[in-house]
Design a protein around this nucleic acid. Structure first.
Length: 888
RNA sequence: GCGCGGUUAGCUCAGUGGUAGAGCACUACCUUGACACGGUAGGGGUCAGAGGUUCGAAACCUCUACCGCGCACCA
């Protein structure tokens, strides 16, 4: 067998294995399998998307779960796909068209534009899928879905029609959130409020009936004054009560408007008077409805002033118009003052421009099954991890409002509604016979015009958990086992999928537990940069995962990221952490390489208690630690604490196995005693085999490579069962043996410390003397000696050290460092310090034992431990003092 | 305003009642028959602050401060 290189080369190994897995169809789910099902649907990335660290985190977690389940004997479906992302994709293509051809979508027309999007999609779309393959994702690519697949699109249409027929979807003229940049309505969830600096303008409205008397009103939006249709104050506000029923002169587009009283006005705010602008503010709209006020719209869809009556403002962009309106009022002496003011403004999540509240005719969904959706999470039919998201979810559902689902966007699922030609969509008539809603066009299409709009992208995504599956697949794999997603789409997607599952009942039975879309939801962290900022293109703080894969390997990236991914908290990304992942891969590679260099063990270690009797004490220790690691990992997985799983594996491999076991086992490995040698090698094989299997979900390529190079199993590691705990408990003296190992390791550390304190170089071979009456320790001398890098370690129960000999009190006895010309003064100083330190600690522990309350109330084991500690410290003190005073 | 997180070593974070931890960074020594992407040893923390519960609190309770997030308000 050729010797392996000292560095693991992911560039050669990772693509090789991924290709083999694909060729072997290892990730293809079989709905006819008799194995229990485990399924995940991938949150579909946008077709325009590029892989981000967020995707890496999210998909690594899904891959870990899928691969682990596969090893555990589940039939696994990990269903991948993409989202057409209506507004997002349309905006991207529009930008591209503007850049390349200087054309807008309107220049091209609907049909041509959609053709261009498809063209663009073929060229630039779906890159992210190839990127996920580089990461090692074990998705069933044969089932890759797209939210615009024919069958999927038909399902979206059908759902729309069904909900319409149930009366849950309706068309209405309402106040909605208008995005003037994208020129479409958006849902409440797509509005992000941000603090914004501006001015509070105090405007004077003259009272019609009392010329010379002014009503002062505070507003942030003077550009909408032309749309004011009333002035309002709180009915209990004495300052203005005499004005009720009178009128004010609207200062721009001068007109008489009534003064009214409404409960909604906060007398504390500003002057306690509100200018009521029903067309441009949600609250004002409601007031307008109550008082039957006219609605005057003075803004265009693009957010420009549309008011020929005030030529100075007409055609101005809304924020320019704001300044100009203030100037006009100022010039007319109607602006009392303008105070700097900061308030929260709703911004479009998509375009990042301020949302314009606007009255518009749109399609709405009255959410069904909200009570049931609350209940399934409250009663833990669906569990959230971390659980605190349950509260966020509940709050949203309890305050839910109808969902505006229509978008003035061309790219997406077209609304399956038609209007009689004489009753075009702009018509206010809503009589049902004038609207046709159906999955097929109306029988006499020439008389109808289809609604121009498409539905919100999320109105298609909410079916993702089951519409991606054919009936047979659904029967086997729905409900899915777990959904892995970022918490920022808990409302957009998670909650709506739950509602969809409960309402549309896609399962084989109508039972609630069969129709929920998933049993668990794991909310991942959000990856931020080292300064805690969100990753964003404009900040340029988002590293390219592909570059990280090139640099550190996919497995290094995966492991590094998982080790720092806490649950329920954001991740601060630091490339050094990925470097650690790569280093860990190298460490594992090298310890496997070392094993390979030692040749065959001939006989594998049988997993029977009898076999354990002949093991070295160090083997028992590492196997016991392996058992503990398996337990720890198991419970960490139960809570989706992937960082803990990774950390336990890291510690076990690096510390327990490499630093301690392998170093200690070298005595046997390099010895002439064939039985001992074979035993040590067999233990290494067992531990490596188990470790690789435990690590496989995190580092699939590397573990597969080592598994195959070392010939640890018959087939590929991805189909190997996870390691069982060893039946060590059946071995009578495990505890004694482990205590001995721990004493030996403590002695080694004490000896190394002596060397360092005496300023002896690491490579200098030196002599140690261990003074002890324990004769059984003599068989461990070679290993102790090796670990201490000693020239010689002698056991001498009666050793008398010259004064000033460096000494450490260890669990095995006093360990002396024999050096010819030790600096006696400095050694004495060191001992003094050591004695003082131990005496201090002994005093502290003793004081505690003096405390009756402690002795009476604390658990016996704890008290006992303290007693032992005192005895131990006292013994150490005595011995150290002897050593210092040279009387030993 | 309501709610949810967080505050532990220079940095990133573990730690759910019993002697304060890991990795990185730092210091010193070391290329010793797997690994310098490595080994050994070391320095470094009044666990945000105040009060309380307890024999005992980083942990549990209350309050405060600061950071982040969500919802509401946002004239």
């Amino acid at each position: 067998m050729a010797e392996l290189p000292t560095r693991y080369d992911p560039k050669a190994v990772e693509p090789k294995w991924y290709q083999r897995w694909l060729e072997n169809r290892d990730f293809v789910a079989n709905p006819e399998s008799s194995k229990p099902a485990f399924s995940i649907v991938m949150p579909p990335p946008n077709i325009t998307g590029m892989l981000t660290l967020g995707h890496v985190l999210n998909n690594t977690i899904q891959d870990i779960l899928a691969r682990r389940a596969r090893m555990q004997g589940f039939e696994v479906l990990w269903l991948p796909g993409m989202d057409h992302a209506g507004i997002g994709t349309q905006t991207a293509v529009e930008k591209y068209l503007r850049r390349t051809e200087n054309k807008t979508r309107h220049d091209l027309g609907r049909e041509e534009f959609l053709r261009r999007v498809l063209e663009w999609q073929d060229k630039h779309g779906g890159i992210i899928i190839e990127q996920l393959k580089r990461l090692g994702c074990s998705c069933d690519w044969s089932r890759q879905r797209y939210t615009l697949d024919d069958a999927y699109a038909a399902a979206v249409q059908k759902i729309f029609v069904d909900l319409y027929n149930k009366g849950l979807i309706y068309r209405g003229r309402r106040m909605i959130n208008w995005d003037p940049a994208a020129q479409t309505a958006v849902s409440d969830e797509e509005v992000i409020s941000k603090p914004q600096k501006g001015y509070l303008y105090f405007v004077r409205y003259e009272i019609v009936e009392e010329p010379g008397r002014f009503l002062e009103v505070a507003t942030t939006r003077p550009e909408t004054i032309m749309a004011d249709t009333a002035m309002a104050f709180h009915p209990g506000d004495r300052r203005y009560v005499d004005l009720l029923g009178k009128h004010a002169w609207r200062p721009l587009a001068r007109e008489k408007i009534p003064v009214i009283a409404d409960e909604a006005i906060d007398p504390e705010f500003g002057t306690g008077v509100l200018k009521v602008t029903p067309a441009h503010d949600t609250l004002d709209f409601e007031i307008g409805q109550r008082h039957d006020l006219p609605i005057i719209d003075v803004l265009t869809p693009a957010g420009r002033v549309d008011c020929p009556a005030v030529l100075e403002l007409h055609g101005l962009e809304r924020f320019e118009a704001r300044k100009k309106a203030a100037e006009l009022l100022q010039a007319r002496g109607l602006l009392a003052k303008a105070e700097p003011y900061e308030n929260n403004i709703g911004f479009s999540d998509r375009s990042d421009v301020p949302i314009e509240p606007r009255i518009s005719e749109q399609w709405f969904l009255r959410y069904p099954k909200t009570k049931e959706a609350l209940a399934v999470v409250r009663d833990h039919l669906i569990r959230f991890f971390p659980a605190h998201w349950e509260k966020v979810y509940a709050q949203w559902l309890e305050n839910i409002r109808d969902w505006c689902i229509s978008r003035q966007v061309w790219w997406g699922h077209r609304i399956p509604a038609w209007y009689r030609k004489s009753q075009a969509p702009s018509s206010k008539s809503q009589r049902s016979e004038k609207i046709y809603v159906g999955t097929e066009p109306p029988p006499d299409p020439e008389n109808w015009i289809q609604d121009e709009d498409t539905v919100d992208t999320w109105f298609s995504s909410w079916l993702w958990a089951y519409e991606t599956m054919d009936p047979q697949t659904r029967k086997k794999f729905y409900p899915t086992s777990v959904l892995v997603t970022a918490a920022d789409i808990i409302f957009f997607w998670v909650a709506r999928m739950i509602i969809a599952g409960l309402e549309f009942k896609p399962a084989k039975s109508s039972k609630i537990e069969d129709n929920i879309p998933f049993h668990h939801v794991f909310f991942t962290s959000i990856v931020r940069d080292s300064q805690g900022r969100k990753m964003s293109k404009s900040l340029g703080n988002s590293p390219d995962p592909l570059e990280l894969i090139d640099k550190y390997g996919a497995d290094g990236l995966r492991f590094g990221l998982m080790r720092i991914a806490p649950t329920g908290q954001d991740i601060r990304f630091d490339e050094r952490q990925i470097e650690e992942g790569r280093n860990f891969a190298t460490k594992l590679w090298n310890v496997a390489r070392f094993r390979q260099m030692q040749g065959s063990a001939s006989v594998p270690l049988a997993s029977k208690p009898e076999a354990y009797a002949t093991l070295s004490i160090f083997a028992v220790e590492v196997l016991a630690r392996l058992n503990e690691t398996i337990d720890a990992i198991e419970s960490a997985y139960r809570e989706y604490h992937f960082n803990q799983v990774a950390q336990h594996l890291y510690n076990f491999v690096w510390s327990d196995y490499c630093d301690w076991f392998v170093e200690a086992a070298k005595t046997d490995i390099f010895s002439e005693d064939e039985a001992k040698k074979r035993s040590a090698l067999a233990v290494m094989d067992l531990v490596l085999s188990a470790t690789l299997r435990l690590l496989h979900p995190f580092m699939p390529h590397l573990t597969e490579e080592i598994w195959s190079l070392l010939g640890l199993g018959k087939g590929w590691i991805q189909f190997a069962a996870p390691p069982d705990k060893l039946a060590l408990d059946a071995v009578a003296d495990v505890a004694d043996r482990r205590r001995l190992v721990s004493s030996i390791y403590a002695t080694v550390q004490a000896g190394r410390n002596l060397r360092s304190a005496s300023k002896l170089p690491s490579n200098r071979k030196i002599r140690f003397i261990l003074r002890t009456n324990d004769k059984t320790i003599s068989e461990q001398i070679p290993t102790l000696s090796r670990l201490l890098n000693a020239q010689e370690l002698t056991l001498d129960p009666k050793y008398t050290a010259p004064a000033g000999t460096p000494v450490a009190v260890t669990p095995l006895g006093e360990l002396f460092l024999a050096i010819a010309a030790a600096d006696q003064a400095s050694e004495r100083e060191r001992l003094d310090k050591e004695i003082a330190r131990i005496a201090e600690e002994a005093r502290t522990v003793e004081a505690k034992l003096q405390n009756n309350a402690f002795v009476e109330r604390a658990p016996a084991a704890v008290v006992e431990e303290h007693r032992r500690r005192v005895a131990d410290l006292t013994a150490q003190l005595t011995k150290l003092k002897q050593a210092r005073d040279g009387s030993g």
